[in-house]
Amino acid sequence: MEYCFGVDIGGTTVKIGLFSRKKGLLEKWEIPTRKGTEPTPLLKDIKYEIEECLNRNDLKKEHLAGIGMAAPGPVTEDGCLRGTVNIGWGDVFLGNEAEDLISVSPIFIGNDARVAALGEYTFGAGKEVNSLLMVTLGTGVGGGVILNGKILAGVSGTAGEIGHMTMNPYEEEQCNCGKKGCLEQYASAQGMVRVARKVLVNTDKPSVLREMDVLTAKKLWDAGKIGDALALELTEYISRMLGMAIANACYIVDPEMVVLGGGVSQAGEFLLDMVQRAYAENVFPHCRDKKFALAKLRNDAGIFGAAALVFQSVN
């Protein structure tokens, strides 16, 4: 059983990769995410894609060690996916349903951010460490903790949900999760734009941000890189929020490394340096030298982590 599939189910697309235990990623592709109230239609799409891939590689299901799936929701210890807001499912034992429909066993399920962290730990930025905290900065803010090579999931599947750590108890606007003042409201791509728009309305300071028809997180960080004063204020504020949240998380799990991933992390060393500096200002002195790194696998972290779920579990 040399092979496995890694599947990363997102709100817009499903990424699929065929992996070899010895050679790593052999093939990858993606399909649109079919949404609905239950997972059967999407699982049928995944089954079709997997069977087509097996056929064109002259493989059979008997050659598979299993399938790993990353899904956008909390996954409990007993394998229950506790709802997927961006797709429309309620609580579902996705692994069991997938095994029955695809006729492959075992199938391992994990939260997408936690599985991405496992991918970076196994194949990416964290290959040389024993533990890490990964923070993904995208449409939302995700998080995952790897301790001694294993995903820390928690009883309810929410361990590592740094994006919903309360950073401002006086926030008046509501987060998508229903709470107020979550890190995600300030440090996600959407949250960064929200903060920037508020500041632009409430100040008359000059900025290239005012000249933009469509303001995005990328444009905000790009403006900071060229020295725009207001953009620098905003990116420093966002970095301070992130640094404080990471410091608080590290008090609990104390990982060897912190990895920043997601689309916003493409701001690169500029972002990494600001967040690391904010972290150092908000943590005990003996924790200040923690390693920080940018994710290496980018959008493929989910499929790599899903494959790691299989090979790690089977071993």
Rank of each mutant, 00 (worst) to 15 (best):
Leu309Glu: 07
Asn315Phe: 14
Leu230Thr: 05
Trp29Glu: 06
Tyr121Asp: 01
Gly160Asn: 05
Ala196Tyr: 01
Lys180Glu: 06
Asn130Thr: 14
Ala153Thr: 15
Lys198Val: 00
Leu42Cys: 03
Gly142Ile: 05
Ser313Asn: 15
Thr13Gln: 09
Ala71Trp: 03
Leu242Glu: 00
Leu81Gly: 08
Gln174Trp: 05
Arg34Tyr: 04
Glu30Ser: 14
Cys175Leu: 09
Thr76Phe: 04
Leu215Ile: 08
Val201Trp: 02
Met212Asn: 07
Phe311Asp: 12
Val201His: 10
Pro39Asn: 10
Ile46Cys: 12
Ile162Lys: 02
Arg277Asp: 15
Leu220Asp: 06
Val310Gly: 13
Ile303Asn: 02
Tyr170Thr: 10
Gly110His: 09
Lys28Met: 05
Gly163Gln: 06
Gly95Thr: 08
Arg34Cys: 04
Ala65Leu: 13
Cys80Phe: 12
Leu230Asp: 05
Leu133Thr: 08
Thr136Gln: 01
Val14Asp: 04
Lys15Ile: 01
Ala153Leu: 09
Cys182Leu: 03
Lys47Leu: 03
Gln266Leu: 12
Ala113Thr: 10
Leu183Asn: 00
Leu54Arg: 14
Ser239Trp: 00
Gly243Met: 01
Ile109Leu: 05
Leu54Ser: 13
Gly110Ile: 09
Arg56Cys: 02
Asn315His: 07
Val85Gln: 12
Leu183Lys: 00
Asp300Lys: 08
Pro72Phe: 14
Asn130Pro: 01
Glu184Asp: 09
Thr84Ser: 10
Glu211Pro: 04
Ile246Asn: 09
Arg288Val: 09
Gly66Tyr: 06
Lys44Phe: 03
Asn148Ile: 01
Met69Arg: 05
Glu236Ser: 10
Phe292Gln: 06
Glu49Asp: 04
Tyr121Ser: 07
Leu242Ala: 00
Ala280Trp: 01
Gly243Cys: 05
Ala293Gly: 06
Ala293Trp: 08
Leu232Arg: 05
Thr13Leu: 02
Gly119Gln: 06
Pro206Arg: 15
Leu297Glu: 04
Glu30Arg: 13
Tyr251Ile: 09
